[in-house]
Amino acid sequence: MVPALIISVGSLLLPETPNSMIERGKNEEAKAKLKRIRGVDDVDEEFNDLVAASESSRKVEHPWRNLLQKKYRPHLTMAIAIPFFQQLTGINVIMFYAPVLFKTIGFGGDASLMSAVITGIVNVVATLVSIYYVDKLGRRFLFLEGGIQMLICQIAVAICIGLKFGTDGNAGQLPKWYAIVVVIFICIYVSGFAWSWGPLGWLVPSEIFPLEIRSAAQSINVSVNMIFTFIVAQVFLTMLCHLKFGLFLFFAFFVCVMTVFVYFFLPETKNVPIEEMVIVWKEHWFWSRFMSEVDYPGIGKGGPTTHVEMAKGDYGSKLV
């Protein structure tokens, strides 16, 4: 009940976004809000871009059909890959079954519960780190750093548990100091997730989808996330019984794969307005092959780079 109350009260204090206001016809309020967000009065160009994007999105009748178009292949890929990898980091294994894990590696009942509380606190504090640095260091940096940090910690935990319990799991309880070392590695792992794949797994999809496909793409993003949350929660205990310490290596493998995926396929979106995100894909070494000149004339090659410039160049029908 307490978290529900916090969310309910917080929702009353949550401000509307300029995009939301424009879509509901509150243009003057949206402009005032945009000035407050940017801290400057000269926001006309960005405001006009937002209005043009909103008008273009209203003309879209089939967002699901549009999402399957070739030019939205990068967006569809990210809508599936990011939430998939987010759950295959193994974070929910830690958060759902932390008391079980800590009791297994040597903590008593009360101590294991306290250890779970500790990991929760670490998660919250590390998320605050992400809030502060995400626009300073960039999304890719946090994704990559967090992935490497989680990979190292999972391998370390697997080695610690493997050396003590082996494959039969009958080596008795861990010494206190040994168990504390394992908990420290797990906390470092949780912090790595909390300032990278945790918040960014939701932030990046929310800012890369154009308005005309956002509803469909976000639906896929959330659905994939929830489906794999369910699957991981259901199979974890069975996997723990069969794989023992190898379970951490299983998730470490996916952390390695997702880190490589981000390095090669996820462009940096820091400080890029949503309505100009197409430029990022157009200039990417791989995704540019899906962004044809027919769909986005001139973008990324010295041509118009914003909705306003595209309109001036008689590209009104080709708004992003």
Rank of each mutant, 00 (worst) to 15 (best):
M1L: 13
L5E: 15
S8L: 11
V9M: 13
L13Y: 09
E16W: 01
P18E: 09
I22W: 00
R24E: 00
A32C: 09
R36K: 13
I37W: 10
D41N: 14
D42P: 11
V43Y: 10
E45K: 12
F47H: 05
E55K: 12
L67P: 06
L67N: 02
A79G: 08
A79I: 01
I82T: 06
P83M: 08
P83I: 07
F84P: 11
Q87T: 03
L88Q: 13
T89N: 09
N92V: 03
Y97P: 11
P99L: 01
T104H: 08
I105R: 06
G109R: 15
G109D: 15
G109M: 10
S115T: 08
V125A: 11
A126G: 06
L128W: 04
V134R: 03
R139L: 04
E145H: 10
G147Y: 08
I152A: 10
I152D: 09
I155V: 15
V157F: 06
V157L: 09
A158E: 03
I159M: 12
G162I: 06
L163D: 12
G169A: 00
L174D: 09
W177K: 10
I180D: 01
C187R: 11
I188S: 04
S196W: 02
P199A: 04
L203W: 03
P210I: 00
R214W: 01
A217L: 01
A217M: 07
A217D: 03
Q218N: 13
I220R: 11
N225A: 05
F228T: 02
T229W: 04
T238P: 03
C241V: 13
G246S: 08
V257T: 14
V262L: 01
Y263D: 10
F264D: 07
F265D: 06
V272R: 04
E276M: 05
H284I: 00
F286K: 05
W287G: 01
S292E: 02
I299P: 02
I299L: 08
I299E: 11
E309K: 09
K318T: 05
L319M: 10
V320K: 07
